[in-house]
Design a protein around this nucleic acid. Structure first.
Lengths: 339, 339
DNA sequence: TTGACTTATGTCAACGTTGACATCGACAGG
DNA sequence: CCTGTCGATGTCAACGTTGACATAAGTCAA
């Protein structure tokens, strides 16, 4: 119960009867140490339960901490969990540890989280920007050689590396897929707020597909939602309108979780549906859910590789990496409109 | 490009023409500082882009880092992501930052990850143990006052706080639910390896439900899988056996993702099904998926609260907190067996 | 046998910060 | 006018570790 101070190198040293430096040498496999001394030191380390203090070490050697920090807007969202998994796979191989924190989509928490990470002298920073946040204040860190990479959404106010999905092209392909199956009235249920980067890009793809097919853009066919409930309400209203859509393109996974049940409950399995982002069980629905699948693990890996490249001395201009998406046909997107 | 050394307190101080200590006072709102000095210091801090070095600070004040570490077996699994979200909600309110890392279900990576965290003098440690890992080596840290809490699965070889779901009771209730609807041949598709804590507890609940109903335990009705594919294969084999089950109890979410499609593809919607763990879209299936839902966010919150209590000086004996689960009826678990 | 080299160890300062204590002027009360 | 108090600041050492350098004993070729 004595809540005793943690043992230090000096404690180990005095127990063995050598200097702290010798213990340091043993633990870092630095300079020469006799086998006898080594054995005694290791025994003492074990007995005392000594753990090196990385903070002290990093300070002395003037190194950054061997950690890479990842800031995401929500921990619970499996998309970001999978992104994090991709990051970890890559950084672990380089002996780096991943630190992760959530900004809760709040600009202020994002700032304080990033500040906390910088205060720990991390080696790299990965950020999925919270809505409305800007990152001008990271300019000095970036210029000072800290790799800063943005994921899923680009940075505002800072020229920095970014890794994003092919949002526009994916949405265009998904909507074109519906049009190719005969639809002319295709609704778009996008994320909220409408200023969100992914929302904007996907809506742009939606409009591109329409105009490529010579279909005029009709704003009454566009709705916004960030949670399933709102999305459900929105899609019901669209279907009840005077000239309802025959197909729906759903712009993010939370919206999908509302749109799919809403269509099912309304008994409207005839409405064609393509969703951005894959979902578990999507293949088991009746009909199966056609999606534009992102590859979140690939996003994480690509971002981590950017960090490693910068750490390795790459001083080239900031670049944006586009990660491909792909359309997975499962039935719901291949339904023809009623004649 | 100069990759210049980061500015220190002393740099700020010499620029303003005061001592480092005065700058420290300004930044920590410690002792008295004149308004004029304060203003000049803050300006210099801004110009130089000074960031306090938390490692140096922590070392000087002899404090642990204001960080709580969470070790999970897989980042991509949304269950753990939601757990992490629960932890974060609680620790953030106390000004603590969450560090997260994945052990990839590997005993060795778990050990090195935990070692890395301990070397950073974290304030608390939360661990979802990897399969087969033991934690005797954490005894000294726990005794030294470091809060150590295990989640989802208890520790092996260490008396420590733990927060787990009511696995046994939940499985018992789920299986009893099937029995109440007339089933006598209920299969169990459990996690793998069979020594996994959650697997064992849930299987125990399965057996308890059977024996409460006077149904003999039939090992040929039990299968194991940790991934969807294997689970699908297993359930098909069960259905093709000479005396097949009329109902299936599925012991974890990855297995569910295999069992549900397998039943659908085999055209066996008549087979009753209850799954441990809720899934998105579970309500939209035909029939809706009856589940025993865990509350991962509550697990995370409870674990974080244990850490905070220990940090607050709670020296009571290690305890295990059970987080309730609940049966959500949606159709698949209420199907009657063929007569 | 000596100087050059190697092996095994020790000493000391420094990393960036802050607690403890010192200093110095201004100002109030007796 | 002296003393005590307070406000504003400075000095110094220490946190735990390791790089640079020093030392001491042993080895070996000339």
């Amino acid at each position: 119960m004595a809540q005793s101070r943690r043992p230090t190198l000096a404690d180990v040293a005095s127990r063995v009867g050598v200097s702290a430096k010798t213990v340091s040498r043993v633990l870092n496999e630095d300079g020469p140490v006799s086998d006898a001394t080594r054995a005694k030191v290791l025994a003492a380390v074990d007995e005392l339960g000594f753990r090196p203090n990385l903070m002290a070490r990093n300070m002395r050697v003037g190194a950054r901490d061997s950690t890479v920090a990842l800031v995401v807007p929500e921990m619970g969202n499996p998309f970001f969990g999978t992104v994090a998994g991709g990051v970890e796979d890559v950084v672990r191989d380089r002996g780096l540890t991943l630190l992760m924190g959530s900004s809760a989509e709040d600009e202020q928490s994002e700032l304080s989280l990033i500040t906390a990470f910088l205060a720990r002298r991390i080696s790299g920073l990965l950020v999925v920007p919270a809505t409305g946040a800007h990152h001008r204040y990271l300019r000095r860190e970036r210029d000072g050689g800290l790799p800063v990479v943005f994921l899923d959404r680009p940075a505002a106010g800072l020229a920095a590396d970014a890794v994003v999905s092919e949002n526009e092209e994916g949405a265009r392909a998904g909507v074109a897929h519906l049009i190719a199956h005969g639809h002319r009235r295709v609704a778009f249920v996008g994320d909220r707020p409408a200023t969100l980067y992914t929302r904007k890009m996907r809506q742009r793809g939606y409009r591109a597909a329409l105009s490529a097919a010579g279909i005029p853009y009709d704003p009454t066919l566009v709705a916004s939602a960030h949670d399933p409930y709102t999305a459900g309400v929105a899609v019901r209203r669209l279907l009840d309108s005077p000239s309802p859509p025959t197909a729906v393109f759903c712009g993010n996974n939370f919206a999908s979780l509302g749109v799919v049940p809403a269509l099912a409950e309304a008994g409207r399995r005839d409405v064609a549906l393509v969703c951005f982002d894959d979902l578990p069980l999507a293949a088991v629905l009746e009909p199966g859910l056609t999606v534009v699948a992102q590859d979140p693990a690939a996003i994480g890996r690509a971002a981590a590789e950017r960090v490693l490249a910068r750490l390795g001395g790459d001083r080239s201009a900031a670049r944006t990496v586009m990660v491909p998406v792909r359309v997975i046909e499962r039935g719901s997107g291949e339904l023809a409109p009623p004649d």
